[in-house]
């Protein structure tokens, strides 16, 4: 891990969104030429895999659709196996602009204790009005706020954007998430898991765009149901055995199901 030569992997989960993914890959390669780009094709029916590869990305093609959680986890496993120093999750629908990645990396650079940086739409940033950028629709924002309040209490730190999938993880935490990344409601659950394992989470302001194509994994009209499910998952997750979670993954057998 020599200075200035950190190996960075951008992980893009994608399901049937070839147009948007190609855009995202191109943008990343342009703005972040030092990083490798990995598209995890989550069993798409369209030409997501070929087109991503043609655009210069590494591609892991899952044989069938496993869902966003498992797709991101595939990327994290790939990063851990191949010794990347930093893994960045970027949505395949163009919500996360490549030029917002350097601020994420900067947080890691300046704070050696931080393991995971989350790009938050709701943190005010110096020199940029908060109103800038896409912040999701009205009812969703209420949900996001409720999550933020609840997760902040659980994690004992203020978190504003718990459903943000724009994250950079480094070092040991990559392997940890690769092993335990939650499957069903990954963004929120992963935070709680990281906190329980003792990893340090930090938020930093980012500006997001409206998605360019595809649909949210959180479907409209299912919002309330989704929230109840996530809360159940988080609450049940809190009951799990977590002693010695960090460093020794074998002491967390119920999730690993080995």
């Amino acid at each position: 891990m020599s200075e200035g030569k950190r190996r960075i992997l951008c992980i893009i989960p994608a399901y049937n969104e070839e147009e948007a993914v190609v855009q995202v890959v191109r943008e990343l390669r342009e703005h972040l030429p030092q990083a490798d780009v990995l598209v995890v094709d989550d069993g798409s029916f369209d030409r997501t895999a070929e087109r991503a590869r043609a655009a210069g990305a590494l591609v892991c093609s899952l044989a069938f659709n496993l869902g966003i959680g498992a797709a991101v986890q595939t990327g994290l496993k790939y990063a851990a196996r191949n010794g990347y120093d930093v893994a960045i999750q970027v949505d395949g629908d163009g919500q996360h602009p490549a030029e917002e990645i350097p601020p994420l990396l900067e947080v890691l650079e300046k704070n050696s204790e931080v393991d995971v940086v989350i790009g938050s739409r709701f943190l005010p940033s110096p020199g940029r009005p908060v109103q800038d950028g896409f912040k999701s629709t009205g009812t969703r924002r209420i949900g996001i706020r409720i999550f933020a309040a609840a997760i902040s209490v659980i994690c004992r730190q203020r978190l504003t954007d718990t459903t943000s999938g724009f994250r950079a993880t480094r070092g040991e935490a990559i392997g940890f998430l690769g092993r335990f990344y939650p499957r069903d409601y990954p963004e929120v659950e992963a935070l709680v898991l990281l906190h329980q394992a003792g990893y340090v989470i930090r938020e930093t302001p980012v500006v997001m765009r409206e998605r360019q194509g595809g649909a949210s994994s959180i479907r409209l009209g299912h919002g309330l149901y989704y929230m109840i499910k996530v809360f159940m998952a988080v609450a049940l997750g809190l009951l799990k055995e977590t002693k010695g979670l960090k460093g020794d993954p074998t002491t967390f057998p119920r999730r690993a199901l080995d």
Partner: peptide, 21 residues
């Protein structure tokens, strides 16, 4: 079913990763 689906998931992920490697 939970156990099977989890193992299935891990196998699928490993195959995808190994293919790319």
């Amino acid at each position: 079913i939970s156990r099977l689906s989890d193992r299935n998931k891990r196998l699928t992920q490993d195959v995808a990763i190994l293919q790319e490697e």
